[in-house]
Design a binder for these strands. Structure first.
Lengths: 184, 184, 184, 184
DNA sequence: AATGAATGAGGCTTCATTCAT
DNA sequence: AATGAATGAAGCCTCATTCAT
């Protein structure tokens, strides 16, 4: 994972992967047909454990929906910028276009779950009268978009201007819940 | 550009670039020291023309600031998903981490300009009493984040679930201006 | 060795070296970092075994020193024109200027030993009253110079006028011991 | 000349030669068929002017032959270590083996003249009763051999231990005229 | 189950050579 | 007579892949 996330598929050398694993290049071929198969299986294997946490998140929670939205977003940042998920997200972003199988797999196993999570969140808010039934409800992923953007920033512009995660989250939540306009 | 955007730096073959340019591999070395120099110069040369449109965007505009925000966001989508900028943005996202020079260059020439643009927009809205002085004003890039996310989606999950740009834009603007909560 | 001695460093092709060794070009890189490293290691490895004979040469020898000088010179011709040392000497001569490391190494491991050998020879002759204490004693290498010249001739003018080694040695010894002038 | 002498035939780049000459690579092909033809013509053209001085040297000289030998040897060192001849000698030594035409040409135009020069010198000494008719007379080149050796040293070991030309010449003359043995 | 040695295809790079202008 | 742009062959080097042990 780490090698692929750091160098990308093409620039990653099997020798580096092997030595990280404490084995020799040839040993890899006892377990994987070739570099691409290794890549796909590595990604799949690392994606699966990340699904459960997303599942749990909504389950038991009582109280106002806006607090729930805030909590969900905070957790998203924590996970997608954390050491477990960040490399995977980076790989999906950079290599997904060249490996449709992986993109599809990731979409179905993770992204679509996130979509459902957000939809149910929004529906709950609408049902309770807290949220408007706006265009956002049908395009829930817009709510999570800034998290993706934060991951991109982290691996791209952090050398120039480091991401200020806390401020970023605050602004994100503010925008998501209140928007820019003054409330009358 | 097209080759690098499609395959990434490592997987791009000079032969492909050359044949696209209607020359032979060796000819490239009459103009560039090596593959990396070619890459960097190609990106730089293609980034520069994209700056002007960003500059123009703010220009003179009268009328309510929320309409201005909407216009700016629509233009951002139009450009960053368009054929000129999209490949560059894709390259910055995928290779920026491995080419800090390029990331820095792009940040300074493009991203920082966008930051200023958005800040002046928000300040204008605050000054006119239309917008709240919220956390968003100090973290303006949160406004543009969904555009980045849209570019990522286009090159990643479009095969699974194509991006519905129009709905995405509507939701984005709705969120940016009004947020989720019902207006009292 | 043979390839480098025949063609020089620049004109030697790794493919030729590999096929001589019964392997494939790529195999070379399992053992040497690059062409230059291969070259340097090949020279070093082949120089080392040539040191011992030089060492032995002086050993114990009783009898008149002029006979000892004659024997040493004859052995020098035998070795430096022989199949083991000749290629190395040729390489040192042709490539030493471009590879100072190798020149230094060869000087320290071989040439300086030869210098000592000749000095001790001459000192012995002076001590026994057989030789004059002339300028030759302080510039002992002049004694070996014709051997170098013979190696150069062999690889240069042998096609035009082959080196007549025996006559050459006789003349060399005659000159070294007696000089041109008639003895009074 | 300078380029070929410094880098050898294979490693010399036509571009470097051209820029030294203040022209462009392609221009060379207006005057020479290819790299090898250029090389051969360059060497030939630069060898020819060096012949005359050798010719003159013996011509008019009266006095003892040993003084003549000394003078000839000193001039040989002066010329072969000098800026005009040294590069040529270096080229002949390093590339002569790979370019028999050049070696033959150089032998016939220069070396054979030197041989004659030395032979007539020695015959004169023998005729006048100054020199012995020894093996040296029939292998005259042994007299010049240390000069060749000095040129080799200059381009090979000078970085380690610089050639001390004056001492070298003294020793050479001493050896040539008197040899090592004490005169009775 | 693992190694280490070897392969061979393929990519980057250099440079002698050509040619239209 | 000279240029400068382009070519294409060839060389160095890397690395995914194979295989005998």
């Amino acid at each position: 994972m780490a090698e692929f996330a750091t160098h990308g598929f093409a620039a990653t050398r099997l020798e580096d992967i092997a030595s990280r694993a404490g084995v020799v290049k040839g040993t890899i071929y006892l377990y994987f047909a070739n570099k691409e198969a290794l890549f796909q299986e590595v990604v799949r294997a690392n994606v699966l454990p990340t699904i459960a946490p997303v599942q749990d998140m909504i389950a038991q929670f009582s109280g106002p929906t806006d607090a729930l939205v805030e909590m969900v977003l905070r957790r998203m940042y924590g996970q997608m910028l954390g050491p477990d998920l960040a490399p995977i997200v980076r790989i999906i972003i950079t290599e997904g276009g060249r490996f449709p199988d992986i993109a599809t797999f990731y979409y179905e196993e993770v992204v679509s779950k996130g979509e459902e999570l957000l939809r149910s969140l929004l529906e709950r808010g609408v049902a309770s009268g807290e949220f408007e039934r706006s265009a956002i409800v049908d395009e829930q992923m817009i709510l999570a978009a800034p998290v993706v953007s934060a991951v991109v920033w982290r691996t791209t512009f952090d050398v120039v201007r480091p991401l200020e995660v806390e401020r970023d989250i605050e602004a994100h939540i503010e925008m998501a819940l209140n928007g820019l306009r003054v409330r009358s």
